[in-house]
């Protein structure tokens, strides 16, 4: 998959969707402590269409944060390019349309959430009453309405993460880039954040986020990208993936009728597994035509976690 240009969901594609993010042959390297160059991202290419919600998955050290930093212009790529809404990611105009939540965000400890948002809002070009109203609305949205004047250093980690979420939503960005979005949030916070993200999605905001919470990803994403050792190893639409992960089992009394079916010698019950529904239907027909009794049909929903582990192992 290395360097492979995956079927794009955007930019002059069949469905006519426009690109929010376009990453082409991106290579990012760092100088290690011993002075040697470390390739964090290697020839990575993908794209994200406008209005899409895409999860960026990978084990620790896979290159997710490096990719996001490169997208934000924090790191100069060694080669390749990152375009955001058709413009280089480091340009001010592209960043004016992005809301970014860093992985480990700290906010000025001696400012309060309202002052923090006011500062970032002013840098975003917001002013006066509009800025104040928006900052207060966002703080209420993330559940910090009662802590607007509490100094950041007195807030818990979860509350600081909420400040981070609020600041990323300032100026109603067209693209949200969220790095480890749910880290530090309690279950209620996660639920609230999920609702905010779903709301943003309904309003057409593109969301690109990395997370280790696969259940979260499954619930929110249209598509997932899996990265390992700086390379893209898989890309799937979550809808298709779910049906791909679904397995069927057919139990009947009698001798095996298909390859791979197993018979319990004590009970005489045979169990056969199928990856798709047509295969199952065909097998049922076969069993019935052989005059055997169908005892049960079981549907097993596969997990994204299992898929993720398998994809990484396969790539390794």
């Amino acid at each position: 998959m290395n360097g492979l240009r995956l079927p794009s969901n955007c930019a002059d594609t069949d469905d006519g969707m426009k690109c929010a993010i376009e990453v082409n042959n991106l290579c990012v390297s760092y100088r290690g402590k011993d002075g040697r160059s470390i390739q964090a991202v290697q020839n990575l290419s993908f794209s994200v269409g406008q209005g899409e919600v895409v999860g960026f998955l990978g084990p620790n050290g896979a290159g997710k944060s490096s990719t996001l930093k490169s997208m934000m212009g924090f790191v100069q790529p060694k080669s390749g390019e990152c375009l955001v809404f058709g413009e280089p990611s480091w340009s001010e105009s592209s960043r004016s349309r992005i809301g970014y939540l860093p992985e480990v965000a700290m906010y000025y400890p001696h400012l309060n959430p309202l002052e923090t948002l006011t500062l970032y809002g002013e840098l975003q070009g917001l002013r006066g009453q509009r800025l104040y109203t928006q900052a207060m609305d966002l703080l209420n949205l993330v559940g910090l309405g009662k802590s607007t004047r509490t100094l950041n250093r007195q807030l818990s980690k979860g509350m600081l993460q909420r400040v981070g979420i609020a600041q990323s939503l300032l100026g109603s960005p067209d693209l949200l880039v969220l790095d480890e979005v749910t880290s530090g949030l309690d279950p209620i916070g996660r639920q609230e954040l999920r609702e905010i993200m779903l709301d943003m999605r309904r309003h057409g905001t593109t969301i690109f986020f990395s997370s280790h919470e696969l259940a979260e990803v499954e619930m929110l994403c249209d598509r997932i990208l899996i990265i390992d050792q700086g390379k893209l190893v898989d890309e799937k639409h979550v809808g298709n993936l779910k049906s791909n992960l679904r397995k069927f089992s057919l139990c009947y009394l009698g001798a095996p009728q298909s390859e791979g079916a197993l018979t319990n010698s004590t009970t005489g019950i045979t169990t056969a597994r199928f990856d798709s529904k047509p295969e199952l239907i065909e097998a049922i027909a076969q069993v019935q035509s052989a005059g055997l009794e169908v005892l049960d049909v079981v549907t097993e929903e596969g997990s994204l976690e299992q898929y993720f582990i398998e994809a990484i192992q396969e790539a390794a």
Partner: peptide, 14 residues
């Protein structure tokens, strides 16, 4: 060091 830089440089400023 305090990682307060990221939200700043993410803004549309040079």
């Amino acid at each position: 060091k305090n990682r307060t830089l990221y939200p700043l440089v993410a803004r549309p400023i040079s």
